[in-house]
Simulated scan of single mutants.
Amino acid sequence: MSITGDWEYAPLRIPLGTGRSAAAQMMALQSEVGGWELDRLQLFADGTRRVVMRRRARLSYLPRPAV
């Protein structure tokens, strides 16, 4: 996790075999619980996804994404 300016970033790796709807549910849960929002999503040729979530640095007392 890194903090840049007013934003806090958390990189996540979603494993191969995780469906699109399951990945969307995982990210929705993180946004509801921890105040995270999607910054970047990258889909690799092997089927894994790299996700970068972000939130305002002032919300750092909330939990980190758990994946």
Rank of each mutant, 00 (worst) to 15 (best):
residue 14 I to G: 05
residue 56 R to S: 10
residue 34 G to K: 07
residue 6 D to R: 11
residue 26 M to C: 10
residue 26 M to T: 08
residue 15 P to G: 05
residue 7 W to K: 12
residue 32 E to S: 15
residue 37 E to M: 13
residue 63 P to W: 04
residue 39 D to R: 05
residue 12 L to M: 14
residue 34 G to A: 06
residue 52 V to P: 07
residue 20 R to E: 14
residue 61 Y to C: 10
residue 34 G to S: 10
residue 17 G to R: 01
residue 24 A to N: 02
residue 29 L to N: 15
residue 47 G to D: 03
residue 55 R to N: 04
residue 55 R to W: 01
residue 40 R to Q: 11
residue 45 A to R: 08
residue 25 Q to G: 06
residue 41 L to S: 04
residue 51 V to Q: 08
residue 25 Q to M: 10
residue 19 G to M: 00
residue 12 L to Q: 13
residue 47 G to K: 08
residue 14 I to Y: 05
residue 33 V to G: 09
residue 59 L to A: 11
residue 30 Q to G: 00
residue 46 D to E: 04
residue 39 D to M: 03
residue 62 L to R: 15
residue 31 S to N: 07
residue 55 R to A: 04
residue 34 G to M: 07
residue 51 V to L: 03
residue 1 M to Y: 13
residue 37 E to K: 13
residue 22 A to R: 06
residue 16 L to V: 06
residue 3 I to P: 01
residue 51 V to E: 06
residue 56 R to D: 12
residue 46 D to P: 04
residue 28 A to T: 13
residue 38 L to K: 06
residue 8 E to K: 06
residue 14 I to A: 05
residue 6 D to C: 11
residue 64 R to L: 15
residue 19 G to E: 03
residue 25 Q to L: 07
residue 37 E to L: 11
residue 27 M to D: 06
residue 48 T to H: 02
residue 5 G to A: 05
residue 50 R to C: 08
residue 13 R to E: 02
residue 10 A to H: 12
residue 39 D to Y: 10
residue 46 D to H: 00
residue 27 M to E: 00
residue 31 S to L: 04
residue 12 L to Y: 08
residue 16 L to G: 01
residue 45 A to E: 11
residue 29 L to E: 14
residue 32 E to T: 14
residue 53 M to A: 02
residue 14 I to V: 14
residue 48 T to F: 07
residue 22 A to T: 03
residue 46 D to R: 05
residue 64 R to I: 09
residue 36 W to H: 02
residue 21 S to F: 04
residue 17 G to C: 05
residue 33 V to F: 11
residue 41 L to V: 04
residue 11 P to F: 08
residue 18 T to P: 02
residue 5 G to F: 01
residue 57 A to R: 14
residue 58 R to F: 00
residue 43 L to W: 06
residue 40 R to S: 10
residue 67 V to N: 07
residue 21 S to V: 00
residue 11 P to E: 01
residue 61 Y to G: 15
residue 33 V to R: 15
residue 10 A to W: 13
residue 42 Q to G: 08
residue 12 L to H: 01
residue 20 R to K: 14
residue 46 D to G: 04
residue 42 Q to R: 11
residue 37 E to V: 08
residue 9 Y to G: 02
residue 36 W to M: 05
residue 21 S to N: 11
residue 1 M to D: 14
residue 44 F to K: 06
residue 59 L to T: 00
residue 6 D to I: 10
residue 21 S to A: 03
residue 55 R to K: 09
residue 59 L to I: 02
residue 6 D to N: 12
residue 43 L to M: 10
residue 36 W to Y: 04
residue 54 R to V: 09
residue 19 G to K: 01
residue 26 M to R: 11
residue 33 V to L: 14
residue 59 L to K: 07
residue 41 L to Q: 05
residue 56 R to M: 10
residue 47 G to W: 02
residue 11 P to V: 09
residue 31 S to K: 09
residue 1 M to W: 13
residue 52 V to F: 04
residue 28 A to P: 10
residue 51 V to K: 02
residue 51 V to H: 04
residue 60 S to R: 15
residue 62 L to N: 05
residue 11 P to R: 04
residue 20 R to A: 12
residue 54 R to L: 04
residue 63 P to Q: 03
residue 32 E to Q: 15
residue 42 Q to S: 12
residue 24 A to R: 07
residue 2 S to A: 15
residue 38 L to W: 00
residue 4 T to V: 15
residue 32 E to V: 14
residue 28 A to G: 11
residue 26 M to F: 07
residue 16 L to M: 13
residue 47 G to A: 07
residue 4 T to P: 08
residue 15 P to V: 03
residue 60 S to M: 13
residue 45 A to I: 09
